[in-house]
Write a protein that binds this DNA or RNA. Sequence first.
RNA 1: GGCGACGUAGCCAAGUGGUAAGGCAGCGGUCUGCAAAAUCGCUAUUCAUCGGUUCGAAUCCGGUCGUCGCCUCCA
Length: 463
Amino acid sequence: MNLRLYNTLNNKTENFKEIKKGKIGLYTCGPTVYDFAHIGNFRSYVFEDLFKRYLIYLGYNVKHIMNITDIDDKTIKKSNELGVDINEITEKYLQEFFKNINTLNILQADIYPKATEHIKEMVELIEKLENNGYAYKKENSVYFKIEKFKGYGKLANILKENLKTGVIGDSDEYDKEDVQDFVLWKGKKEGEPYWKTKYGEGRPGWHIECSAMSMKYLGNHFDIHMGGVDNIFPHHENEIAQAECATGEKFVNFWIHCQHLIVNNQKMSKSLGNYYTLEDLIQKGYKPMAIRYLLLSTHYRKTLNFTFEGLERAIRSLNRINDFIFSLKGLKSNKGESEDISNIIKQNETRFRENMNNDLNISGALGVFFDFLHQINLKLKELKTKDIENVLAYIKRINSVIGIIKEEKSIPLEGEIEKKIKIRENARKAKDYKLADSIREELKEKGIILIDTSDVVRWKSVK
RNA sequence: GGCGACGUAGCCAAGUGGUAAGGCAGCGGUCUGCAAAAUCGCUAUUCAUCGGUUCGAAUCCGGUCGUCGCCUCCA
């Protein structure tokens, strides 16, 4: 079964086909580095990561570009409010962003181009638009004339005449010919950073950034562009307009958009007190992998309702996977390999892939994976040495896609704890269960969980 | 006003024409000194609702009710 993806461009699920065999150009809209990213942002990033990991799993060579918006209204506003240089602000939150990405086990992009380092490319793009008759200067700014572009609105499925006019955005600050037109280059304003270019002193509009940088690194025509649904209009619509009017070529084949996250059925907002950054959740004691699992486990085109109850459920679901691996690693086995187990793996992987191929149906795919755990649990005692290896290798393959299983670090036990375990063992042998249980309870409080098996005592760390 | 999404068990969530996956929680067994994990059984005659098409509908069509998003800040 082929990989099928829902393409916002025509609102249909289509067979995926790459432009250049085996290679994929992927562009994802990155953060505006003016503040900590919130869990809604990470829902998108985690989904994009899942998708990218799956492409890699399928054997594609993926070139992934994620832009960094480090010049825009918000970064400027923050800089002015705090009286701190804008670069200091953006650098700080860029580092925080990278830290968060790492915490959530999100693979790094190949390149993180910054807007401020691509002014030249943006100006060149504006130049092309001007030459082709799609851009006009007014006062000190440059605008895109959407009336000239017939395809305008095709992504968002919006008719030009239905666009609300006036009152919003820049319409009264800048002097456009038509309120629907969007800005390519913003003339210099007092107290704002600016660049000297052929269009005068000023700074780039937001949309031009993504068009310029994506084409620089991926070419005029590339495979996949992703982002949150809110970006469909106007951002991605404008990107298409800029790129296609400048090059005359089709810009992107597949537009994939991730739905939003809401909290307790309400839009996340600071005023409602339901606004969470990753840091907030981690400080509450939630583990990154549980957060990742939660963000990941709902299909990307469905609104995800974030609740702490859901997060608790995610923890317990993850426990099932981790406990399984734990039991597997503690097994004593005989040499050999059984065909039975190899077949289960093969069949399960096929089903996993079928679900993922179906527009990245992660819920279905996870269901398949839990089926696998169950099937193997039933045969745990019959597993041979090679079977265990095969099962672990399969889990590793699955995890290369979902990325929710953290490699267990074998933390050495402190001597004192080891001593306590021995005392408890002796107590158990002497049937002094009162003492044994109190030691078990004591260690549990220290984060060490003891598990009695028929021959040895095993332990695991809560962390 | 225009465009669009969604409504499946206590909770989360697959299934998109062939008779309701999976996870969590709950109850009752097995295993265990007791636990933990695992395992077995039970837990939706029914998919918001009303009608239609069909041999057959959660799935297709139409109406109704409800929730939500977008229409130049936004992942």
